[in-house]
Design a protein around this nucleic acid. Structure first.
Lengths: 182, 182
DNA sequence: GAGGTTTTAGACTATGGGACGAAAACCTAT
DNA sequence: ATAGGTTTTCGTCCCATAGTCTAAAACCTC
């Protein structure tokens, strides 16, 4: 999945596993994994056509070039595949709030407003830019980058630039209740 | 897994899937699923012996009778299987803090102290009984049951009885940051 | 009845995060 | 250049969740 044109776009691709090949190996063989900012395994089930299928979720940054074997998920996608995509979306949305997973959907360097747009597209609802900044900064997920982004045609204060401190999935432990007493 | 003798005990079992059988169907055929209070799918991978394996995590209440085909995980368990068990434990511990998953490890009716013991065994660290009660009550996960438990040999105030309001997995949505603004 | 034990309830505090508004820094138009 | 509009940024206030602590309640045994 990736954020594109202000929305969350889902792309599907089927990979056959060769004999004696690992699951991750099959994915790496068929897909240029280096272009994906994040990859994780989801559910395994038997689709309606009888194939034993393990679903992976990959996230790509905006503007990433992907080769042409991907099918964009739309109204013509079969129901069982759309079900899987919906589950993947739900998982992505949940993780966005308690992990740094935004790094995989955002450009490498961005302003808070641009990051906000990414979260709005992925979450499907409005997000406060100031809260987003404070939450992610407090967690140490974001860090400043030197320089400012010049304002656009309509004017406005130049925006500071940020990037994610880590490019790997990290879970915020602060949302966990029932911590051990001191 | 289940809580037993103040510790978290892990039991393993292997199930072969028959041709044209669903994954969940294979599990139901081989295991008396009704005795498990919770069952969820975990990771799929290829074990060292080359078998494509989908791991399920089942939780049983204390005192549940299980038939004899289970292998207790211990020091003689192969490393790749122990790895899976460790991942399952980590997942269980994380979910205990933001879901009502305790229902699957605790007896149907219990005192707060007994519930505390279950959480201590599962989480591996101390838990404050008063916090546990307040957190789960506020979430609506617990509800009172009529009656009191008589104190034991050493005396003490009789304890109120509780049960989980739901016997199905429910996720607390309050831990989610970046909620939509009103 | 005194002393010990367990449970329960309440007050206090710390922290994460939502809501809001003002100031800063830029643009365009007059 | 000066006024007005825009976007970004910062700070303050407030609320909800949850950790800490203490005292009271209700039982036991001696």
């Amino acid at each position: 999945m990736r954020v594109d044109d202000g929305g969350l776009e889902a792309l599907l691709r089927r990979v056959e596993r060769l004999p004696r090949e690992s699951l991750a190996g099959a994915v790496r063989r068929a897909i240029d994994v280096g272009r994906l900012a994040h990859l994780e395994q989801l559910e395994t089930r038997i689709l309606r056509d009888g194939t034993l299928t393990t679903v992976y979720l990959g996230l790509a940054r905006p503007g990433t070039e992907l080769d042409g074997d991907w099918r964009v998920v739309g109204t013509r996608t079969p129901p069982d595949e759309r079900e899987l995509v919906a589950a993947a979306q739900a998982r992505l949305r949940a993780k966005l709030s308690y992990t740094n997973l935004g790094f995989a959907l955002a450009p490498e360097v961005f302003t808070i407003s641009e990051l906000r747009d990414v979260y709005v597209a992925a979450l499907g609802h409005d997000v406060s830019a100031t809260n987003l900044q404070r939450v992610l900064l407090r967690r140490g997920a974001l860090e400043r980058v030197d320089g400012l982004r010049a304002p656009g045609r309509t004017g406005g204060r130049p925006a500071a630039l940020f990037r994610f401190a880590s490019q790997r999935l990290e879970v915020t432990d602060e949302f966990a209740a029932l911590r051990p007493p001191r």
